[in-house]
């Protein structure tokens, strides 16, 4: 029997079919554009953080723990986008999904929490831009489009056998996750609504596409994506096992978001029972 192994463009380096160690998978590669983007973002944050040290108010608004969280988010982004794990995308759906979930569900909440409290005026250009993208309808629509379109077989297959596997799709997952978590965690209080109810419902709805996809992967009896059919997978896993593990990864990655959504909904209900008006901007919890 001959077993197919698909191969993403530009792949190579790791022996396909071997059992790569964690060290091999995490060793870094060098894509200049991605490194440049990461360094620019990191430098921008560090510069702002150092500036904030110059005043007591700045230090209060931008505590050190936020910088530590940012460093963690930056490091995880580096690993998810610049490790050798990228080269075996075609040989491990689970590893591919693990990287995407780190970018969509782990890095974004950390990055949002790492932001200092910014009182951005709603009528400035930046305020209007954020007001557009952080509109829950817009964020939900973009996130759902990313999750659903790129996990339908046509979109997913294209991401494996085209250039989108290299950098574009991970970038979309990261940006989509940032939008969702920015709506949920509300880092821009002068722009975003306060209602726990709205944010709770949003979080719950935003989690549904991922849970749906994860369920399909978990319970499907056949491999759904042609590039992985009969693929020679890492660690002697079968393609179907890889698909099921990917389902678990996606489901587990979505759980913190769902838990937070339920927490916000409970806070909203408590507020309503305490006499809040429960309106779009009501239901505030002090």
């Amino acid at each position: 029997m001959s077993v197919a192994v698909t191969q993403a463009a530009g792949a190579g380096g790791l022996p396909i079919g071997a059992n790569p160690t964690l060290g091999e998978l995490l060793s870094l590669r060098f894509d200049p554009l991605i490194w440049l983007a990461l360094l620019l973002v990191g430098g921008w944050y560090v510069y702002g953080f150092i500036r904030s040290r110059q005043s007591p108010q700045g230090r209060q608004s931008w505590p050190t723990w936020r910088a530590v969280i940012f460093a963690l988010a930056w490091f995880l982004t580096l690993i998810a986008t610049q490790s050798q794990a990228i080269t075996v995308t075609a040989n491990s759906m689970a590893l591919y999904m693990g990287r995407l979930m780190v970018l969509a569900e782990v890095v974004p909440p950390l990055a949002v929490l790492a932001l200092p409290r910014l009182n951005i005026a709603p009528h400035t250009t930046l305020g209007k831009l954020l007001g557009f993208f952080l509109d829950p309808w817009v964020a939900l629509a973009l996130w759902s489009a990313i999750i659903i379109f790129w996990n339908l077989p046509a979109g997913f297959n294209a991401s494996i056998v085209s250039n989108t596997a290299a950098a574009f799709l991970p970038a979309l997952y990261l940006l989509g996750g940032l939008l969702v978590w920015a709506v949920v965690l509300r880092p821009f209080p002068t722009i975003q609504g306060r209602s726990y109810g709205n944010r709770g419902w949003f979080g719950l709805l935003a989690a549904l596409p991922m849970m749906l996809i994860a369920s399909v992967w978990l319970y499907s009896r056949e491999v759904l994506y042609s590039p992985y059919v009969s693929a020679l997978c890492l660690w002697n896993l079968s393609p179907l096992q890889n698909q099921q593990i990917s389902g678990w990864i996606m489901m587990l990655a979505g759980l913190p978001g769902i838990a937070l959504a339920f927490g916000q909904l409970f806070a909203w209900l408590i507020s309503l029972s305490d006499g809040g008006d429960g309106g779009p901007e009501g239901g505030e919890v002090a």
Partner: peptide, 14 residues
Amino acid sequence: DSERPQSQVPHPEP
């Protein structure tokens, strides 16, 4: 707030 200039660098407001 609307008159306050915005910096491209994250700059915490009081």
